[in-house]
Nucleic acid binder design. Sequence first.
RNA 1: GGGGGGAUGUCCGAGUGGUUAAAGGAGACGCGCUGUAAACGCGUUGGCACUGCCUACGCAGGUUCGAAUCCUGCUCCCCCCA
Length: 398
Amino acid sequence: MDESDPEASRQAAELAAGAEECLPEGGLAEKLRTARREGRPLRVKLGIDPTAPDIHLGHVVVLDKLRAFQDAGHVVVLIVGDYTARVGDPSGRSSTRPVLSGKEIDANAHTFQEQAYRVLDPDPAKVEVRRNGEWLDMRVDDLFALARTTTVAQLLERDDFAKRFGAREPISVLELLYPLLQGYDSVAVRADVELGGTDQKFNLLLGRDVQRAYGLPEQVALTMPILPGTDGVQRMSKSLGNYVGVTEPPDEIYGKTLSVPDDAMAAWYRLLLRTGPDPELGPRDAKRALARALVARFHGADAATAAEERFDRIHVEREAPEEIEEATFAGDDGAVHLPGVLEEAFGLSRSEGRRLIAQGGVRLDGEAVTDADVPADRLDGAVLQVGKRRFRRLRRAS
RNA sequence: GGGGGGAUGUCCGAGUGGUUAAAGGAGACGCGCUGUAAACGCGUUGGCACUGCCUACGCAGGUUCGAAUCCUGCUCCCCCCA
């Protein structure tokens, strides 16, 4: 390899820091040299799925890396997978995912972009947003040409395909086509680098084959480690419900972070803060510091301090928070049936409310309620609490 | 074209005529404990002003004193052979 440009090698090492893999070996430095020679920035691609627009911390790991490329003067190409989404999810075993309308995709793409810009530099010179419908809405001849670039055996090498094929589980033809379509995106936008989680490794590498088939230079595939979700085991994902969204309020980000099992804490530190925990701190304080740092990142330092204070007040001191949302209840001067109030205030079903009362999970001004019927006088102005973290101040409806 | 298998509660999954609102697990929720919305233990987990009633096992009918379980038709899914 050409070592005449140590600057490129240095920048490549810096950009690949924290990545799981950066393939091929030396490819990134080579790309940087080429780009410099041609006097242009690298085009760094990320594909996004417009069916689940909310960005969570798992995305942030990849977006942070994109940001690093931007800061080094390169251009990020976000590809909204509108066309692939319109086709619908082919694997839908139990229920077919509803095919999104153009309007929904627009709305989702907009939301995604807005949230992604909390991490990315929104400077139009540094980010380009494209829809793959621009080029995937192709003629059948062109689709045939694309399909010819790859064999079924190649596609079946992908781990999850291989497993499903081995287990005699269904794989639709459309699913097999997905990696090709994604690869064609790289052709269309002339990607120099494509990012993704480690689960994307196959697709990113196949993109190289597709590019080569179209006579284009092959992209570098850069994969980032997968962030475990709040359960500490499975990858963070919206559908698994173990995610922390970047637009969530400070208290949610703080609390959810504290609920992460200790085992996963090191991964969160490494992937989200790019440091380790302070070795002076015990696990509890290390996790609190992590939670503060994450809230501060998306809401500012003051919000982080405030979120911690509220958390301590509710969970450590077991007191009601200072500010409580109000809820009204209808009642004359007699007894009020509490399950109805719970339904009104928290959206619980009445049966659920009854159960909670029976289990001592409902409190009025800190005292457990034992009877489903409560005098109206006792409710007005009182704090109604369900479990540890749901509070409402009651007001009689006038 | 032929043959076989399947659709059960939020999810996975047992149940093949009678204490079955439906085993078990996961998830969720509550209580206790605590270092926290962690871990662990216990409990709850269709709806309804609830010692009762209503609605539920793909959809629509039927048989029966009685059906998730049997029959008929329909819809959808999977596998094998060609």
